[in-house]
Amino acid sequence: MSHLRLFISLKMGTSPFLLPFAALEVGQHLYWQFGKLRIHGQVFMTSWILIGALLTLVVVGTKKMERDPKGVQNLLEFLWDYIRDLARTQIGEKVYRDWMPFIGTLFLFIFVSNWGGALIPWKLIELPSGELGAPTADINTTVALALLVSLSYFYAGLSNKGLRYFEYYVHPTPIMLPFKIVEDFTKPLSLSFRLFGNILADELVVAVLVFLVPLVLPVPVMFLGLFTSAIQALIFATLAAYYIGEAVEEHH
């Protein structure tokens, strides 16, 4: 294990003088500079491609919709139904409609990001710095998503219950107040790091295994990675919906 870590850490950051054959580039980014702002180009490139694919699927599937669904419409309706069930069970019958697009977008975006990162051979495209991969393997993406979830559940709580939302912090007893406040910080932290850690770890494990044993052995790990990717998308969306549901829930 320490052997593996050595390989990875050698290429993390900038240590170009060691092991030129190491295939892993962790923590290196393709920077795009806009004035004083810097962004990670590789994250946006992959996310645009994947969002483009997602939107293409959606546009193709909704072009000619019928009461008797055919082809892609079936898939889209299955996804819609799946997302509705998720939102309805977590958020509740009353307001789930308002939040379904957000929850669904989180799920679909994370899902295509994770699977796109795992299934498309990005590594064939050479970048001057960094490498293409799942957008969700970048901490910026996952923190952005997690902060959106935080804003959403605050907004959901305040817009539904007004200032009574803050009753939630002293429910069922005021002793809960510090824990509930800490929760507001741990929720985005755990959301973002769970997703980031899982996807990055999956990419690393596959990359290290491919690097060490290029044949056969990485395949089951790749399947495991696909499984993890799907599960992580579901977990993120479910937790986001649960937090929103918790915020709009009426206490009695």
Binding site: Q28, N140, A144
Partner: peptide, 18 residues
Amino acid sequence: FGASEGGLFDFDATLPLM
């Protein structure tokens, strides 16, 4: 990870843009 630039936890304008 001792990097002078970049790294795993490199927060920048990617976050709000994303």
